[in-house]
Design a protein around this nucleic acid. Structure first.
Lengths: 194, 194
DNA sequence: CCCGAATGTGTACGATGCTTACATCACGCT
DNA sequence: AGCGTGATGTAAGCATCGTACACATTCGGG
C-alpha cells in the first residue's frame, strides 16, 4: 500500500482504494457511512467516486458482498465439516462474534433492504444461505433440511441482532458466547422432551 | 380529532399530533423518517418539534416504544395463555407478520442501537423480553427457561428480519406464514431425534 | 505528436438535523 | 380590565449529505 506516494492526478486504482477506505471507516465508527467521508479518506474529491460507482448504494452493495464473503470464510474456518450439533454451536458463536466485531458492516449487510435481486449483496447473501443449508443437512440428515436451515439461520441471526441492538443483557465477549451456546443447547435439549 | 379546525397559533396538543404524523409517515414509505417531514405533515414549522422532543432520537424512541406496545398487544391477543408448542408457533407467525406489516416501525424498534438504557424504547423492549420469558417457561416448564427464551426470541426475530431484508425467498403472506411454521415445526421435530 | 477517451475536480442544488434569535399567544395577578 | 411572564411557534442560518453538471487533466493508441 506504499509503493509510490506521489499524489498523481490519476489514482491508479481508485475503485479499490475507495472500497478499502470505506471498509476502514466502517470498522472505525459505527455511525452512518458517508460517501463524502469515503472520498476524503481516499484523498480524492467528493464526486470522484461517481466515476466508479453509480451511487452510494452500489458502493455499499459491494462492501456488503465483501462482508458476506468474510463471514463465509470465518464460518468455514470455524468448522469445515460440522457433523455434530456441537459444531453447529461453534458456527453460531462465530456468526454472532462477527456481528459484534464488525457491527457497522453487519448492519450494512442486513439492515438495508435489497433493492434489485441481482446486486452483489443479494448474490452473496444467497450463498450464505446455501452454506447454511448444506451444513445443516449434513448435521441433521433425517430432518426437513430446508425448514431446519431457515430455522437455524434465523436463530443465529436473531442472536446476533438482538445482541447488536442491546436487547439482550449484554456483557463482555465471554458472557455473550456463553449465552449463545446456552441458547443453542437449550434448543437441542428439547430433544429429551416428550 | 376534528372538533375545531381553526389553525390557531398554538396547537392544542402538538406532541401527540407529531407522534401521530410520524407514525403515519412510518406506515407509508419505508424510507428514512425525517423530522422536517413530520413537522410538515403536522402542518407546523420545521423546528416546532424541538419544543417537545430533545432531538430526533427522542421522537423515534417514543415511536419505538409505541411499536413495542402494539406488538405486545398483538402477541397477547394471538395467544393469551400459550400452553402448547403450537401456540408458540402462532406467536411466531404474528411476530413476523407484525414486522412485515409495519416494516419501517419494526426497523426503528430494533435497527437502532439503544443509546441510553433507560429510554422508553429500551424499557418497552425489556418488557417484550419478559413476555417471551414468561410464556416460554409456561410452555416448557422443565427447560432452562432463560436460555430457551433467548433462543425463542432469537429464532422468531431472525425469521422476521431475514424476511424483512429479503434474505429468504419471499412471497405472499401465506408463503411466509408457511415458512415460519415450517421452521418452528422443524425445530420441534428435533425432539424425535436421537 | 496529437487527439479522444478515461478519469478526477469544482461548483451547485436541494435536503437534512440542529442551534439561536425572535414573534406570538395564554393565562394569572393586581 | 390590563399587563407581564412563560409557554409555544417561527424564521434564519450552519454544517453535512447525496448527486448532477460542466470543466480540467492525464493516458494511450494512431
Amino acid at each position: 500500500m506504499s509503493t509510490s506516494e506521489k499524489p498523481r492526478y490519476h489514482h491508479g486504482d481508485l475503485r479499490a482504494a475507495l472500497l478499502g477506505a470505506a471498509m476502514d471507516l466502517l470498522e472505525e465508527d459505527d455511525g452512518g457511512l458517508s460517501l463524502r467521508a469515503v472520498a476524503r479518506r481516499a484523498g480524492v474529491s467528493a464526486t470522484a467516486p461517481y466515476r466508479h460507482f453509480a451511487d452510494k448504494d452500489e458502493l455499499e452493495s459491494e462492501l456488503a458482498a465483501q462482508g458476506f464473503a468474510d463471514l463465509g470464510h470465518r464460518l468455514a474456518a470455524a468448522a469445515a465439516q460440522p457433523a455434530t450439533p456441537e459444531d453447529l454451536a461453534q458456527l453460531a458463536v462465530n456468526y454472532v462474534r462477527f456481528a459484534l466485531d464488525r457491527p457497522a458492516l453487519f448492519r450494512l449487510m442486513f439492515g438495508t433492504p435489497c433493492t434489485t435481486p441481482e446486486d452483489a449483496r443479494a448474490v452473496a447473501a444467497a450463498e450464505l444461505g446455501a452454506f447454511v443449508l448444506t451444513h445443516v443437512s449434513q448435521a441433521f440428515p433425517q430432518a426437513d433440511a430446508e425448514a431446519l436451515a431457515t430455522a437455524s439461520w434465523s436463530l443465529v441471526h436473531g442472536l446476533a441482532f438482538l445482541h447488536l441492538d442491546g436487547k439482550l443483557p449484554s456483557g463482555n465477549a465471554e458472557e455473550v458466547e456463553a449465552r449463545v451456546t446456552a441458547a443453542i443447547t437449550a434448543i437441542l435439549a428439547l430433544r429429551g422432551t416428550a
